[in-house]
Write a protein that binds this DNA or RNA. Structure first.
Lengths: 114, 114
DNA sequence: TAAACATTTGAATAATTGTTCAAATATTCA
DNA sequence: TGAATATTTGAACAATTATTCAAATGTTTA
């Protein structure tokens, strides 16, 4: 099973397939992680945030959705630690908070487009 | 916006973030793709199949689940073209059918483990 | 052919989830 | 302070989904 030289910049090398099946807890964490990407609204939000941080209102405009609907999804993304928030006055600015998000979206895009 | 030299072996280079937001159809495809990874049963199946092809019964045993439940999920994974099937007598053997699956699982594992 | 085996399928059920709507909180400005 | 703006929150509703169970399909063996 080739692993194409996968390595990380910071931290230990992570060997996955050499070990057995992860425990139930880890498997749930992994599926929870992917569930964040299983909704097109959240994909749109993440995509938009690759251009830099944005306020809630601005995101809602860009997506053509209500502020409330967007806020609900922002909360889930933040709970999952994929985005972080910064408060400035009455505005809250959100931005990406995970190095893997770009790579994950890239890979999905490749899969879909090929 | 760093893209870390992402490139493909076969086919055109895929530039994602340089373009704008994909159309609704593509966004749905992407979220559908990730939805396949949002269930721990399916993650277990994919993980198991990295060791090579397996029959339905064998997968069910390995996962401690009913054959029916596993078969339902195998169908979804096959419809999503993440796995393929090979029939031999009364057995059906499944195996991975997407180069990106390993990379996707690796990235999730890194995210969870760090 | 009949029985045993491997897998698939469809309907039913319970659980999860995204959006809407209304109301609450928090901050700025006059 | 009071009005206006920005965001969050909770409840309700509709839609989706994973598993179970029973039955069907297809294949091998006696």
């Amino acid at each position: 099973m080739e692993h194409g030289g996968t390595h990380k910049e910071h931290g230990e090398m992570v060997e996955r397939s050499s070990a057995g099946m992860p425990d139930e807890r880890t498997l749930d964490d992994i599926s929870d992680f992917f569930r964040m990407f299983s909704d097109s609204t959240r994909i749109k939000i993440l995509w938009a945030l690759e251009g830099g941080e944005m306020g809630v209102c601005c995101i809602a405009d860009a997506l053509g959705m209500t502020v409330s609907a967007v806020s609900h999804q922002l909360r889930k993304l933040r709970d999952a630690r994929l985005i972080k928030s910064r408060k400035d006055g009455r505005n809250v600015f959100y931005s990406l908070d995970d190095d893997h998000v770009e790579g994950i979206l890239d890979m999905a895009y490749e899969h879909i487009m090929e």
